[in-house]
Amino acid sequence: MAAVRPDSGGCRIGSAADFDSWIAERSAAELTEPFTFVVGTDGVLRLAPRRSEHVACAGGDVVLSAGEISFMREADRWAVDEVSNQSTGYCPDVTSWSAAARALDDVGIERPSSFTHEVVFRRCLDCQEHNIVREDDFICVFCGNDLPETWNVDPIV
């Protein structure tokens, strides 16, 4: 992948001080949009500008969670305003919330109790295309076949 270079990953946010430094560098315009996030297999949050690819944010590595996240200032601290698992690079299951929650807790950022917007991803067993399931309609938009009820986006090994 040309877009994934060792130096192209998102900013590693392993502590409150890391987050405070990172957020202080954001412009007012940047703060009006969500950011790209991933949680690596090390459990650490990584953040990048919204239009960054999740796979690039993760440096091409496997992740525990991925999506978009926005922050708001609440009294004297930062909190998560909205967070989703919307990542077409990784297509994470909604159950990846637990990894995102732990990473945010480790940094000390207030957060909701779950994704504020959940995206349901499935891979079609017939044509192998990735789908976003809308309104519980588990039908492949590419070939019309039924999609599995359980998450299955991991590649077949």
Rank of each mutant, 00 (worst) to 15 (best):
R12W: 02
C57T: 15
D136E: 15
N145V: 09
S8V: 04
V157F: 13
W22Y: 14
G144Q: 03
V119Q: 05
A3H: 13
A79I: 10
V63I: 15
A101S: 15
E82N: 13
D154I: 04
I69S: 08
L45H: 10
S70F: 08
C127W: 02
G59C: 05
S15F: 02
D126V: 08
L104Y: 06
T88G: 03
T36M: 04
D7T: 07
C127I: 04
V141N: 04
A16Q: 12
A56P: 14
P148I: 02
A2C: 04
D137G: 01
C11K: 05
A24M: 00
L64S: 15
V119T: 15
T41Y: 00
T150F: 08
G9Q: 10
P6C: 00
R77L: 06
W78N: 03
R73I: 06
S84K: 07
C91A: 15
P49A: 10
V120T: 14
F71A: 05
A29S: 10
F142H: 15
T36H: 03
A17D: 12
F115E: 07
S87A: 13
E118R: 15
V4S: 08
V120C: 10
G89R: 03
G10R: 06
I23M: 05
A29R: 13
D93M: 02
W97T: 07
E118P: 11
